[in-house]
Amino acid sequence: MTSLIHAVELTKYFQVGKKRYLHAVDHVNLDIPEGKTLGVVGESGCGKSTLGRVVLGLLPATSGELYYQGEDLIHGNKKQRKKMQREMQIVFQDPYSSLNPRMSVYELIAEPLVMNHVYGSRRETLQRVQELMEIVGLAERFINSYPHEMDGGRRQRVGIARALALRPRFVVCDEPVSALDVSIQAQILNLLMDMQEELGLTYMFITHDLSVVKHISNEIMVMYLGQCVERAPAEELFQNPLHPYTKALLSAIPVPKLGASLKHNLLRGEVSDPINPEPGCRFAKRCDHCTEACAGKNFQLKELGDRHFVACALYQ
């Protein structure tokens, strides 16, 4: 199987002061097969959004390699890169702030088409906008509406239509449903899955919500402070989580069932400082299984069983 997105040791550091670097994404490897979904899960500040932006070329990588269909996205020539980036789009988190309030639905969806001179005439553009609105399930009567006249679910549909306008093959969904109510959230998730089937899209689905990611992903990657700590096929990760952080994350989700307790496996402390971290496991300070072996050196992902990778001293 060929992978659409392939990244090797992708790294993004932000300089925040003299010799102070914030390790947002730290040596992450990616492999997303065509037509599949990679879920990226982690808490705020773990670098999941930065990873999405680096993959799309919205932020330059500090080091590492990135390939789209085997083409080098970091060192390749600029013109070529631009062309490929048209096939890579993003759906943003907050449909309240990611749409220009002074543009109508038509203008918003037509913007990528106009910017890229896709169609010669306004009639063709209008036709494509109507087609896109139908794909994402927006009634035609909204074509002249403005974002403030619509609820969150409809706004997110506009965001999705924008992302689809240029017929992408790869879409980064950056928390596309976390600003929505559950009943609407389910509508949007179903829409994303239907579109994947119909259009053969490949997704990188970024979220903090493990129960959402389970439904949409084929493979899941758990991130902690810029590093990938565990990666496994979706079912496998939920049935057999290995990394202590993944386990804690799973048991911290409040389950809508009687007698569910949150006290089991409660994590101490908070995420530590991502600026110039010491080598060693970054989760060690909050981990119950922490030993001396956890400090001093970084742990590489190690394959345990079928495509299940984990970076932890317990499994070396």
Binding site: E43, H208, A252
Partner: peptide, 9 residues
């Protein structure tokens, strides 16, 4: 975040 949510609850 979920882990912090669990602590606060």
């Amino acid at each position: 975040d979920v882990t912090i949510q669990a602590q606060v609850l």
